[in-house]
Design a protein around this nucleic acid. Sequence first.
DNA 1: CCTTATTGCCGCAGGTTCCA
DNA 2: TGGAACCTGCGGCAATAAGG
Length: 281
Amino acid sequence: MLVNLETDLLRTFVAIAEEGGFSAAARRVFRTQSAVSQQMRRLEEALGQQLFEKVGRQRKLNEAGQNLLTYARQIVALNDQAVVTVNSSQQSGEVRIGAPHDIADSILPRFLSTFARSNPRVHVMLTVDRSPNLMPLLEDGRLDMTLTTRHSERFQGRLLRTSPTVWIAAAAFELDRRQPVPLVLADEPSIFRRMALNALDQRGVPHIERYTCPSLSGIHVALNAGLGVTARTPEMLKPDLKVLGEREGLPPLPDVNFYIYRSNVALSQAANALFEQICAG
DNA sequence: CCTTATTGCCGCAGGTTCCA
DNA sequence: TGGAACCTGCGGCAATAAGG
């Protein structure tokens, strides 16, 4: 008697294998640990096979589990591919998305490239501006969604991720601790600018602004020229840059949150798809 | 089929005791 | 004095019970 394996159960199973435990997998599939535990019991019952063995207080895949994992990944991937293909073949239209320079230059490209591959007929219009200018556009529906580092209660959205903030300079840059810290910063309003200045002020570290530029590419140029240090997420790091910290006398920086918010005006199907995709990570 | 609340199990860090 | 053995409390992980 053949059994049908539920994609949902397999998706959770893959999450356990990749996250290294039931609790971490639960967070990934947006269920409770208890639900994951019960799902895996159902999966084992369906197969009539134990899939895990106890290792300390955790459960790891046994041999049968390892065998299943290969197929589970393929089944889940094929399922998702089918869904995307069917949807994208029908989906066309326009998506208007906003992002401040900080984000447009760093985390946005990853989201856009995934979406572009699965939605070749959708026209994406990106507005790069400061958050205070983007929010009114979202308010009156001239933007479908916007990414931002600011929390807002006025729009439906979610926290996409929290990233650490670090001090960054050219790999060859040497900080002279007898001199004020030379800063390479975006102009206001910039969350990284405020973080850097606040942290230095609170620690009482002398500093001067050597260079100001709104775009990340401009910041890059200044860093590479050895003009100073900046505060950014590690995503900005490239081989020609390095992280500075306590050892160089620089104070720790707070984490930065990345949010996405959607317009309260009804979204097109394409815009909805992009929003859901970005939310899903 | 899910959630919350609860339980048992286990790893780990820190403290105490004992002995060479 | 220092190292081994043991104890204890805390917290994380998974299972289970009960309820919607």
